[in-house]
Design a protein around this nucleic acid. Structure first.
Length: 599
RNA sequence: GUCCCCGUAGCUCAGCAGGAUAGAGCACCAGAUUCCUAAUCUGGGGGCCGUGGGUUCGAAUCCCGCCGGGGACACCA
């Protein structure tokens, strides 16, 4: 069952074209589209069908449009079909057909807009994947929200989605983290070393000096007493403590990150550990697989173009033939000392995904990883014989602004804004919605003052207010149930049974048209991997509703509830409920709560 | 030098698989409050869609060049 009246009409149009042009091959109709016209004066729908088939048949589009219009005019749901412009066919639907959507939406409830476009194809969406070296900060936030919304969106579009967090717990950064935690442990034991004395002994210097590791040091002392240190709380050889401290600290950091994610309402189905993949021999397995396809060799790379790093020297390394899959240069799998590169481990990660049977992989990465996309696509292509697709969604940086001034993001200066701070300041819904009000790959300004402002200028508020207004009306009519329950199925059914002939005002029809566009919005947003489109749709839908609401101010006969007009009242209440259902369906995709009352 | 992203109203940004006369908010100007929440709404001015080509019946949208802004470019993750 589809509620997409555009998709349904498209099927009708293609069938009509087939009757007119029986000799055309199937794929000639692929570009036929049915969409709402920009100008409402053109009717409810427009199709380019005649223009699309004009070329292969070598017939003038206007002539075909006239034929098509004639056929479409005979359809029961069509009131009028006219050829227009360069070959469009404009359709005006019978009012009853448009109105019939209202009970359908009410019956579907929050499932309205669900699509089968994805056909149950298994998709893995990986996002966040922040290094487990500290609490999450604002920089991670956008990717988390975009990824989570994308997973929800693809699910709604009919894909079988697994959301995944890849824990980078195997590289040099977690070694550095372990040293930092070890320093806090020594402090907890009461060492008389200074931080700089200790730092001088750490290979690569002491990083991660933030306070957040202090409790980790204390916990280490509690569990291991002084067994990981030399007498006098002096540092012991790394071999005695490094693995232990690292694993303990990574676990603690991941626990903190999971709490942060929970506070943001972000869900991951699975957490995959890089270290575990390495222990399981996935890296060797991936390397063997690539070797068997003759995609690995020993070689020396050219120095990078442009400015050559000062310490550059030719080194023989194990290289992957990424150039065979569209990358610019071949990429190292092993460093000159023979250990695996991050890229190699990530190949193992992707092999792991491919083995689990995903047909499509999606990643949400920060824009600074843009240079990494081609090689990863090359690797996935190589591992899967080009059968599995990889899509990367890049998210641009977020500038936090308060009082017109940029909020500086510096770990060292201690002005680092954690995700938790942000959520506490403006609320989870505002964070999520606002992060989705820009295309992911466009830079964004996050104005702390604006997102809590209760005005038209703040889309979070504006959309939630529309939903609350719907409930306000239903409460006024004595219909809404207990707060927070949404609209019970029984109520939706009884509202949906009302005759709707009374819905004739242009603002009412405009609202229904908007609601009708929801399923195709879901599909196009999912196809483009652009969850921000949902935010824009909801803002438009909210605007249509606010307009209608205000019509009742200017003209009392247009109010939703009119004691003396039973038929009009029940029809309008059904429309209000359908609006609430659609708003709710959309907010669910964004992971934002549909509030039923504004305070 | 190479690759990726961006360039649309004064500002912040949309533009739906290429469609008809390019939209919204803010700001500015003028209005609406005995009324289901004015926390909203109505009207107005404001554009060479960076630029030059190409593909097409048709381009802000796709392709190529150029200009401007941001990011990434062995042995980091």
């Amino acid at each position: 069952m589809t509620h997409d009246i555009f998709a349904a009409m498209r099927a009708r149009i293609v069938a009509a074209l087939r009757e007119i042009l029986p000799d055309l091959p199937e794929d000639a109709f692929a570009r036929v589209a049915t969409e709402p016209p920009k100008d409402a004066a053109h009717g409810d729908m427009a199709t380019n069908g005649a223009m699309v088939v004009a070329k292969p048949t070598k017939q003038p589009p206007q002539k075909l449009a006239a034929q098509l219009a004639e056929k479409l005019a005979a359809l029961p749901e069509v009131a009028e079909a006219t050829a227009a412009g360069p070959g469009f066919v404009n359709l005006r639907l019978r009012e009853s057909h448009l109105l019939a959507l209202v009970p359908a939406v009410l019956a579907a409830g929050e499932a309205y807009g669900d699509s089968r476009m994805g056909q149950g194809v298994r998709v893995d969406v990986e996002y966040v994947s922040a290094n487990p070296t500290g609490p999450m900060h604002v920089g991670h936030c956008r990717g988390a929200v975009v990824g989570d919304a994308l997973a929800l969106l693809l699910r709604k579009a009919g894909y079988d989605v697994t959301s995944e967090y890849y824990i980078n717990d195997a590289g040099a950064q977690v070694q550095a983290l372990a040293h930092a935690a070890y320093w806090r442990y020594l402090q907890a034991l009461g060492t008389d070393m200074t931080e700089e004395e200790f730092a001088a002994q750490v290979p690569g210097g002491l990083q991660y000096r933030g306070d957040y590791l202090v409790p980790v040091g204390a916990a280490l002392r509690q569990i291991f007493k002084d067994s990981l240190a030399e007498p006098g709380a002096r540092p012991a050889p790394a071999g005695r403590w490094l693995d232990t401290v690292r694993d303990f600290t990574v676990t603690a950091m991941m626990a903190a990150i999971r709490e942060d994610l929970a506070a943001l309402g972000v869900q991951h189905d699975v957490f995959v550990s890089e270290a575990q993949l390495v222990r399981d021999g996935k890296l060797d397995q991936a390397e063997a697989l690539l070797a068997a396809k003759d995609l690995i060799y020993r070689g020396v790379l050219e120095p990078p173009k442009g400015k050559t790093p000062d310490d550059w020297e030719p080194r023989e390394q194990t290289l992957f033939r990424a150039t065979q899959f569209g990358d610019e240069v071949d990429r190292p799998l092993r460093k000159s000392d023979g250990s695996g590169t991050y890229f190699a481990n990530d190949i193992a990660n992707h092999l792991h995904k491919i083995e689990r049977g995903f047909a499509e992989l999606v990643h949400v990465w920060g824009a600074d990883h843009g240079g990494y996309v081609k090689r990863m696509k090359a690797a996935v292509g190589a591992l899967s014989d080009n059968k599995v697709g990889l899509d990367v969604v890049l998210t641009q940086i977020v500038h936090v602004v308060k009082g017109g001034q940029p909020v500086r993001m510096s770990k060292r200066a201690g002005t680092y804004v954690t995700l938790r701070d942000l959520i506490e300041e403006v609320g989870r819904d505002a964070v999520r919605f606002t992060m989705l009000t820009r295309k992911a790959d466009a830079q964004m300004e996050f104005d702390l003052d604006k997102v809590i402002e209760q005005s038209r200028d703040n889309p979070v508020f504006y959309v939630q207010y529309a939903h609350a207004r719907c409930f306000s009306v239903l409460r006024q009519a004595g219909l809404a149930g207990p707060a927070g329950q949404g609209l019970p199925a029984a109520l939706r059914a009884s509202l949906g049974a009302a005759p709707l002939d009374a819905l004739t005002d242009p603002a009412e029809i405009a609202l229904i048209r908007r609601i009708a566009a929801w399923p195709r919005t879901v599909e196009s947003a999912a196809a483009a991997r652009e969850p921000h489109r949902i935010a824009f749709f909801l803002t438009d839908l909210a605007a249509d509703f606010h307009v209608l609401w205000n019509r009742g101010r200017d003209d009392a006969t247009l109010r939703f509830i009119r004691a003396e007009e039973q038929a009009a009242t029940s029809a309008r209440l059904a429309l209000v409920a359908a609006t609430a259902v659609t708003l709710r369906s959309g907010l669910a995709v964004m992971g934002v709560e549909p509030v039923e009352e504004m305070r």
